[in-house]
Amino acid sequence: MLNYTLRRLMFSIPVLLFISFIIFLILDLAPSDPTGNLPLTIPPEVREKIRESLGLGQPMPVRYYKWCVQFFVNEPLNIWDQYWGTCSFGCEDRLRVVSYVTRSPVVDLIVQRMPQTLWVVGMSYVVGILIAIPIGVISAYKQYSWFDQTGTFVSMVGFSVPPFFSGVLVIIIFSVQLGWFPSIYDTTLKVVSWDTFMLQVRQMVMPVMVLALQTTAQISRFMRASMLDNLNQDYVRTARAKGMKESVVLLVHVLRNSLIPVITVIALGIPAVFGGAIITEQVFKVNGIGQLLIIGIQGGDAPLVQTLTFIFAVMIVMANLVADIMYGILDPRIRYD
């Protein structure tokens, strides 16, 4: 297993480098201009100077090489130095990947966005899964019952209603009409006491629910299908023939086997958590990674977009690996070597 993991990791290095180059190429070819969003009152000559000061005058390969050095060498060194409080290899004038728009290191921006993204999007993923699994189990066990039909309907809603609709709808109901929850997420809130904790919970409720609806819809369908697959298997009948309790049959035999593919799907979905939920973040002003990306795209902020998309690519490759390894661990029939 270890060998397998190492081999996979090694293979992913050229793949990721290639991906980073492709991303760079696409961004370079895209007709976006970091000065495009500036007011029209700024004259063209000034725009040209701004572009030059951003390093846009250099040829593409040079810029790509610089990004690679900054991202693969300087940023890790910087993390190392920050962690140990050291200053190695000339930390003073080490060039980091810097955003065109904020003129600050991209990695710092991403780190700053992590808490709210993980809290809101991550939590919604967890909540969504926790709701989805029992729903999937019950719907499969009581296939075609009213519970199953309702579950099918709700997940259809979850699949088809976009968050910019459901988000605004819950804001109008729970913020405007009832006044229960804030419609704007406060990223400056620090949880230090019970009251601030409750504030945090209150501001998370709506975005988490809107996002969890989607996760639930998806995972509960998977869970249901996987349970149905297993419920009709002979080994379930064996378990019943053994005279095991129905709960044991369901939870030990069927559920454990049904979870294998579902856990794979869950693992593959994790990069999406880090990718944020662009629309939901916008609707509730959570301003996490997703919103950072969208602002970067709108502002023609190539270093930011490049770095973020590349990190997503790494996440996706990693999640695939994790999914494969998990599969190997959970299913004794699979062995990698």
């Binding site: 080994y235 064996t238 005279g243 086997n257």
Partner: peptide
């Protein structure tokens, strides 16, 4: 209620692969 009587009556299944829990 049948569960308590199960020990007395058992079954050997047709498909030995499918009838054993793979995990």
């Amino acid at each position: 209620e049948l569960r308590k009587m199960r020990p007395a009556m058992q079954m050997v299944f047709q498909d030995p692969q499918a009838s054993l829990n793979p995990r």
